[in-house]
Structure formats: C-alpha cells, structure tokens
Design a protein around this nucleic acid. Structure first.
Length: 871
DNA sequence: ACTTAGAGCT
C-alpha cells in the first residue's frame, strides 16, 4: 500500500555543485530557441497608451519591485538567464492569481513519524498532553495540568512537544497558555528563542497569523526573538495566510536587523509567493538573490517554485524547472510530482499528466491520495468524467484510502454536473467511514444545487450545515449571494449578505468578481460598475477575471435597468454612471452600499423597461473599462481576448467592432494581427501567425481554448468571413479543441458556438458528400448533435439548436429533429446521399465570403491609422 | 527551533 508519508528524499545538491557556465549556456540557448519560435511575442506593444516610449516586450509587465531583481549583473542571475521561463511564452495565461481554498487550511504534523532522533520529549509530556486534550474547551484547565506536571517536565523539548501536539489538535489557545507558562519558567535566551519560533510556526499553521506576529513582537521585545528561526517562522506564517507582501516586508526587516537569511528563510519566502499568487518573476527574483548570497537551493526550493507556476498557470516554466532540478542533481519527491501534476492538470495537459504519473511510479515515488485527487480534478476539469471515476476505482484498487479531500473532490464533480443523487451518496459514503461533511462539502452542494436553480434545496442545505455547527465561510456566502443574484432573488441575496457582514467576514476579489459576473450575466452592467467601484473603495484590487466579466456583459443586456429615483439617470450613459460613482458623495456612510444595490435591484425587479436606452453608448462604457485596465496595469489573458471578440460579434456595426479591435491591438499585437487579418480576408498572409497563436492557445485548458476558437469563428462569421471562419474551425478540429466531434455518422456540435457550429456543418456535409461521390455508402443513420445549450460557453439555451435548424432548412438539408432527443438532428444515409447528389447542393455547401462589409471600407475607417502608429 | 503538494472567480 502506498504510504501518504514516504521517507524523505535527501537532496544531493550540496554534494553536487553544478557547473555554472554550462548551465548558463544551456539556458541561453533555450531562450533563443523560444524567441525564434515566437517571433510575434517580441512585437508586443506597450500597455500604456500614453507612453509609447517603452516599446520593449517587458512594457506589459508590472514593474518588478526591489533592487534585487532589476539590474542583475551577478553570474547566477535568473533574471537575465531565465526570462524564457516566464516572459516569452505564456503571455496568454496572464495572471489568474488563482488561489486555493486550502490556503488557510494548515497541514498539521499529523502522522509524521517522529524519528528517534527528533523525539526528545519525555513520557511525562505525553501524559500531560493526554490530560490536556481531555479538557478541550477549558483553557484554564491546561494551567492546572501544567502546574501539576511542572516538576517532571523536562525543559524546552517537552514544552515544544506539547505546543506542537496541541497545535495539531487545533487547540491554539491552550497552546498559547502552554507557551506562556513555559517562557515564565525559562531564563536561557536560546531556549526562549526555541519556544518562540515553535509557537510562531504553530500559530502560522493554524492560520492565526496575527497571533503569530504578536508572539514574534513580544519575543523581539524581550530579547530572544531576533533569530533567523523566528523570522523564518513568521515569514512562513504570512505565507500560509496568503500574505505575500507582508512576508517580503518581514524578510526586509530581517535583513535590516543584520540577520542572514538561510535556506529555510528563502524557501518560506518563495512559498509565500506561490500562496500569495505572486508573479513568477517575484519568486524568480528571490531565487536569484539566494544564489547571489551563496545559499544553494534544495528540493523544497524547487518544489515551492513549482507551486508558484501552479498558481500562475505556467506549465512550460514548470517543465523547465523540473529539468533544471534534474540537471542540478536534486532529487524529486512526492511533493515535486504532485505539484508538477497540478500544473499539468491546470493547464489541461491531462495526457501528459498520466505519463508523469507513470514516470513517478517507475521512480518508486508512489502516487498517494494527493496525487489522485489532483488527477481526478484535472480529468473532471477536462470534461473527462469517465477517467475521473476510473481513477477513483483505481485508488480503491491499489489500496489508497479516500480522505476528506478525495471525497470532497468526487462530491464536487457530481454536484457541479447536477448529478445530485450521486453527490449525496458520496456524502453518505464519506460519513459512513467517519468523515463528517465539512464546509467544503456543503459549499460544493450549495453551488451545484444553486446553479440548477434549486433554491429550496439551497435553503435547506444552508440550514442543515448550520445545524451541524459548521461555520459558513467566505466562499459559502459568496456562493449563496451569487446564486440568489443569478436567480434574481435579490431579497434573499440581501439577507445573506447582511449575515455575511454580521459574521465579520471580509469580501475579497473572488467574492466581488463572482458577484459582478452574476450581475453582468443579467445585463446589469450599471450595478456591476457600482460594485466595481465599491470593491476598489474597500481597497480590493479587481483582477483580470473581474474585468473579463464586465467585458462579457457588453451587448448582452436583455433588460434595461430602471432608474432608481425616476429622474436624471435615464440620460446617463453607462460611462457617466461610472464617473459619477467614482466621485459620489457618501452621504449615507452608515448604510452598506452593497445592501443598497441589492435593495434597489429587489425593488426594480418588477419594472423591466423593454427599450434599451443605451444605444451606442454602451460601447463607451466598455472602452472606459479598457481604459481602467490599462491604468491599473491589469494584464489581459486569453479570456479577455475571447471576450473582446465576442463583443465584436454582438456589434451591430463594423465601426463599433473596429473600436473594440483597436483595444485588442493595444493589448496584444499577435492576437490583433490574426483577428484583423482573418477579418480582412487576408488569410494567405496571416495564417502562419494564426498557427503560432493557435499553438499558444493550445497551452490553455480545453474549455478556455475552445472558447477562444468559438469567439474568433463567431466574429468572422458575423462579419461574413465565412471561409475564414471555416478555416479556423477546421484547424480547431485538427487540434482536438472540441474533443471528438466528427465521424461519418455523427457530428457533435454541443461545445461549439453558433458560428463555429455552422461553419462546421458545412465542412462536415462537404466531407460526407465526397464519401458519396467516391462511391461509398453512408451509414444508415446520420446525426448532428447540438446538445441543450448548457455546455456552451457563450450560447444560451437552445440558441445553437435554432441556428443549426435554420441553417439546415435554409440549405434544404433533409435533417429532422429526433423524437427522443430534441438536441439531435437525424436523417438516413440514403436520403442524405440523394440530396448530396442533387445538382444544386454543392453550391449551398461551399461557403462564400459575404462582402456586405468589404474590407476596403474598413481600411478607410480605422485600419490605416493603425498601421501608421509606431510599434 | 524555522520551509514544500490536492477541494473557490470569467
């Protein structure tokens, strides 16, 4: 059976110093190659419209802080030798700054077998511990126990043992009492220092970073806290709570006070970058610094760097790091592999992930429950439920016990798919083996039921979790509020929001983004703008996800918001509303503004004005959003590009679309070049760049990639570039962007946008036609699947089906809706073959570009200006 | 005495 705690693999680093020169040579070579493969990446223009003085490829990067990372002449500088790791390739990934819910959950020291050399406590300490855990909840009790054992407890080792074990049992307040008891009885500074750094570490693991800081400050004040151990522990404590900036500040303070950071300090700091969602360059800079200071990285250093890649979605960087590790002779361990798998899965490279899993097994690093739940999540994310489930079976088969996370992962998959019976059964199974449902379990259920609009079930579950004495967390409230907003149940949303505030919880960027997205999806752009403003007032920086949601809202407003107080607002363009809000007088600071927004929505719900008063002004609102993104230096990602392309598809005029495309140009010249080239019918010249762009997109996870193809095709189709649309779709098919969509008997369109699907239908029928004309027989039954619309990223219910229905009947294609499945069009092979043989059929199948929007017109309008701008 | 992996946003 695979052990969850394999024996440590000691690093060989120190005994295998590598050759710097060789190493550098390799990296430079590597870098040059990458540049060569991506000629366009060096043409990126500045993100700042005003400053065209910085046309370098780094202009789009946020400035890297600190003197250590900017000008590096040191021989080992990662900055000058590793830019290929972070900057040349995955521009499309940008910073998702993704965070994990586990970031506050500390991994305790449970089950870590203490080796004989490390267990220096006495059996008296164990006895004291037994008594202490028995009086859980009564803090004073620990004092009595300690007093009764005092004479027999043997020095600091016994006390640190007690602290650690109390920490493992989450008894932080008992641990603090124990700590205070111990320091009162200790005089030696060194021993006091041990107690303090242990205590800081324990509080850090429990997410009690403020308490950790207090212990640290007191220890410094009393003269025993100024040690590298205490500092490292504090840095780690901030890391575990996701406070990267704080961790770095502590690090600076440490250096100022004359202490020399050691390997552990640097490792903790790099870890802070990963957990705090920092740029890879930040971590990379720290790595440089440690090398410059003669501290050799070890396995944990690399594992932590890999974790940074995981957060930033840098699959290629992760691979390079892994090779670098091998090159330096640093052994990999289960952490290395699990983290690498995480990056692979996040990037949608599920097949590579399976290969890696085999590789680790051959190296005798056996997959554990973490490996499996990582892989399972990856499969589910890639839409491969079958593989996910077979991994669960495999897990049972090889004797790895499912733990809390594994169960929650499985339950979450079912819940997210609306398979509630299965989800609830998983819940029962986990409880049957003694794992109680926790907040994560309930969050998954609430989200799943909520997404299906089962509000009664949501209410019931929320009550149930409270009756189980589970404390709802930020995510719970975020889910509930978004679910209710999505359903238009603003009154319920208000109630939940009030409760959330009452609990003293503070919203974060994910909370706001989710809510903004919910409102955007309902076409409530103005309310979203209010929320955006509110979050910034709260000091929470919106990120690219936040902005993508707002861009997505462009042109999607189905209902116009009513003016709140009947008067002036009707005349306001959304842009003006944005400005108004920014300067708004805060008369009622007492009232929560989010509550205001909800109450307004709840009151307005009944009065849907059907006339869209925005007209062409909405474009100004969206342009304003882009302006803000530039100002805040928020890097767009591939989702942003898809959103812009989709917005173009919703434009009624070419001119509007040109304004949006101009924004695309300012963001990314490569994507712009391809989109514009294809739109102009300039396929011959732009196709090489298009292929290179598609290579980059393929790095993304499958749904992100297909969304991009969908968006690009839709835009081309919308503006009559149907052959270009078809070319893109076929390229997507060739690259398996939409899974297996195509056979002689069946065309599955359910993951495609309507433009992509239509272009695909033409291509498929042409293909079938050539089968017929080659003299082969068609399958008995032919079917075209459109699904129900719920999988599609941009198409609402039934839109795809209607589009295909219209297309087929327009062509006179003899397909009919299947009786048993309204998402399927069917026909018999014989009937279709007869139709394909008709003389007029070929003409309707071959796509022609629609010249209602001749490219000439466009060249006059805007495009000529684009070309004269300096790049 | 201090350090590393899996469950939340488009």
């Amino acid at each position: 059976m695979a052990s969850s705690t394999p024996p440590p693999h000691y690093t060989l680093t120190t005994s295998k110093p590598y050759e710097n020169h060789h190493f550098h040579h390799l990296q430079n070579h590597h870098q040059r190659n990458q540049r060569h493969n991506h000629p366009w990446t060096s043409q990126k223009v500045s993100l700042h419209r005003s400053s065209q003085t910085q046309p370098t490829q780094n202009a789009a990067k946020p400035p890297t802080p600190g003197p250590t990372t900017t000008t590096t002449t040191a021989p080992l500088s990662r900055n000058s030798n590793f830019p290929s790791l972070s900057s040349s390739k995955s521009e499309l990934a940008a910073d998702f700054s993704g965070r994990r819910s586990t970031r506050f959950v500390s991994k305790m020291h449970f089950g870590r077998p203490k080796t004989a050399s490390t267990s220096r406590h006495t059996s008296t300490a164990e006895e004291a511990l037994q008594q202490a855990v028995r009086c859980s909840g009564d803090d004073k009790c620990i004092d009595n126990i300690l007093r009764s054992f005092e004479s027999k407890l043997c020095g600091v080792d016994d006390y640190t043992f007690l602290l650690r074990e109390l920490g493992n049992r989450r008894e932080w307040s008992m641990a603090i009492r124990c700590f205070e008891f111990a320091i009162r009885r200790e005089k030696r500074r060194n021993e006091l220092g041990k107690l303090a750094s242990s205590m800081i570490s324990i509080l850090g693991r429990l997410g009690k970073v403020d308490l950790a800081k207090k212990v640290f400050d007191d220890a410094v004040k009393e003269g025993y806290g100024n040690t590298v151990y205490a500092y490292s522990a504090l840095i780690s404590a901030y890391a575990k709570s996701g406070y990267c900036a704080e961790a770095i500040r502590v690090f600076e303070t440490m250096k100022d006070s004359g202490l020399k950071p050691n390997l552990v300090t640097y490792n903790a700091l790099i870890d802070a970058c990963g957990k705090g969602g920092a740029d890879f360059r930040r971590a990379s800079g720290i790595f440089d610094e440690m090398l410059r200071n003669g501290v050799q990285p070890d396995r944990i250093t690399y594992n932590s760097l890999l974790a940074v890649c995981s957060g930033a979605g840098l699959w290629d960087t992760a691979r390079s790091l892994f090779s670098e590790m091998v090159y330096r002779g640093i052994d990999q361990d289960i952490y290395t592999y699990n983290t690498l798998l995480d990056v692979a899965c996040n990037g949608g490279h599920i097949d590579v992930a399976f290969e890696i899993m085999v590789e680790m097994t051959t190296k005798n690093i056996l997959p554990n429950e973490v490996t499996y739940s990582t892989m399972i999540r990856g499969c589910a994310k890639a839409g491969r439920l079958d593989r996910a489930l077979s991994l669960f079976n495999e897990m049972k088969y090889v004797g790895i016990k499912l733990d809390r996370v594994s169960y929650n992962t499985l339950l979450g998959i079912y819940a997210s798919l609306g398979m509630f019976e299965e989800a609830l059964n998983v819940g029962k199974e986990m409880e049957s083996i003694g794992i109680k449902k926790d907040v994560v379990t309930y969050n998954a259920l609430l989200d799943g039921f909520g997404k299906q609009g089962m509000y009664d079930k949501v209410k019931e579950l929320f009550l149930e979790m409270k009756s189980e004495h589970l404390l709802p967390n930020l995510l719970t409230y975020s889910i509930l509020i978004s679910v209710y907003s999505n359903g238009g149940l603003y009154w319920e949303a208000t109630v939940v929001y009030r409760e959330f505030k009452q609990q003293g919880l503070k919203a974060d960027v994910v909370f706001y983004s989710k809510l903004i997205d919910a409102l955007c999806k309902k076409g409530l752009v103005e309310s979203s703008a209010l929320l955006l403003d509110e979050m910034m007032k709260e000091g929470i920086q919106p990120n690219v996800v936040t902005y993508n949601s707002i861009i997505n809202a462009f042109g999607q407003s189905e209902t116009t918001e009513c003016a709140a107080d009947g008067e002036s607002q009707i005349d306001h363009s959304p842009l003006m509303v944005l400005e108004d809000v920014a300067e708004s007088k805060t008369e009622d600071t007492e009232q929560d503004r989010i509550v205001n927004i909800f109450e307004q929505l709840a009151a307005d719900k009944s009065c849907h004005a059907t006339i869209d008063t925005r007209g062409g002004q909405e474009i100004l609102c969206v342009l304003g959003i882009f302006q803000k993104m530039h100002e805040l230096n928020i890097k767009p990602n591939v989702v942003t590009f898809s959103a812009i392309l989709n917005a173009c598809s919703r434009c009624s005029s070419f001119e509007e679309a040109s304004l949006l495309l101009e924004e695309l140009r300012l963001f990314d010249n490569q994507v712009y070049g391809v989109a514009r080239g294809l739109l102009m019918g300039d396929r011959a010249n732009v196709w090489v760049q298009a292929l290179s762009l598609f290579d980059d997109v393929k790095q993304m996870d499958s749904s992100t990639a297909s969304a991009f193809y969908n968006a690009l095709t839709d835009m081309l189709w919308h503006f009559g570039q149907k052959r270009g649309a078809q070319l893109v779709v076929l390229e997507g098919k060739r690259r398996h962007v939409w899974e297996n969509t195509w056979s002689d008997s069946c065309l599955d369109l359910h993951l495609m946008s309507s433009g992509a699907a239509r272009a695909m239908v033409h291509a498929w029928l042409l293909n079938i036609r050539s089968v017929v004309f080659e003299g082969h027989e068609l399958p008995k039954l032919l079917s075209i699947l459109t699904g129900w619309g719920k999988h599609s990223k941009i198409v609402g219910d039934g839109t795809l089906k209607r589009a295909i229905e219209a297309l087929l009947s327009g062509m006179g294609a003899p397909f009919r809706v299947a009786k048993c499945n309204i998402g399927r069009f069917i026909s018999t092979g014989a009937v279709v073959a007869a139709w394909l043989r008709e003389s007029g059929t070929l003409k309707v199948l071959v796509l022609q570009d629609d010249r209602t929007h001749p490219p000439e017109t466009m060249r006059i309008d805007h495009v000529s200006n684009f070309q004269t701008l300096p790049l």
